[in-house]
Amino acid sequence: MALHKIKKGDMVKIIAGKDKDKEGKVIAVNTKDKKVVVEGVNMVTKHSKPSAQNQAGGIINKEAPIDSSNVMYLHKGKPTRIGVKMDGDKKVRFAKATGDIID
């Protein structure tokens, strides 16, 4: 299985699609479908019936998943690719543009 380099909490820039050039924080990652949910990006309108949690029901705006190939990690405000290398006995992510270790 391929390694997913974008993680929850990362700041990313959208590089393709209707929200191109927008930036946001990753809320959720779906590794099975290779999709991410980014805060304030790819907004969709959902119609919900009244329920116990939402008594009024109505129209709700929420973020929809976007393919992970359409986002790029932001390091120090600039988009960069991410690589993985061994640091001692543990794997760490690093920004390919600068070589800095991310986590």
Rank of each mutant, 00 (worst) to 15 (best):
M1T: 15
A2I: 10
A2Q: 08
L3K: 10
I6Y: 01
D10Q: 04
D10I: 01
D10G: 00
D10N: 10
V12D: 02
A16I: 06
A16H: 15
G17F: 13
K20Q: 07
G24I: 13
K25E: 14
I27Q: 08
N30P: 07
T31H: 08
D33G: 13
V36C: 03
V37F: 15
V37K: 14
V41R: 05
N42A: 07
M43T: 11
V44K: 10
K46A: 12
H47I: 06
S48I: 15
S48E: 12
N54A: 04
G57W: 00
N61G: 06
N61H: 13
K62Y: 08
K62H: 08
E63C: 13
D67S: 12
D67N: 11
D67H: 10
S68N: 05
V71R: 00
V71N: 01
V71A: 00
M72Q: 11
Y73I: 13
H75D: 02
K76W: 00
G77V: 06
K78F: 08
P79D: 02
P79E: 04
I82L: 12
I82P: 09
K85E: 04
M86E: 10
M86I: 14
M86N: 08
G88Q: 06
K90S: 14
V92R: 03
V92G: 00
V92S: 02
V92A: 01
V92F: 05
R93T: 10
T98V: 12
T98K: 00
G99Q: 05
G99P: 03
I102E: 05
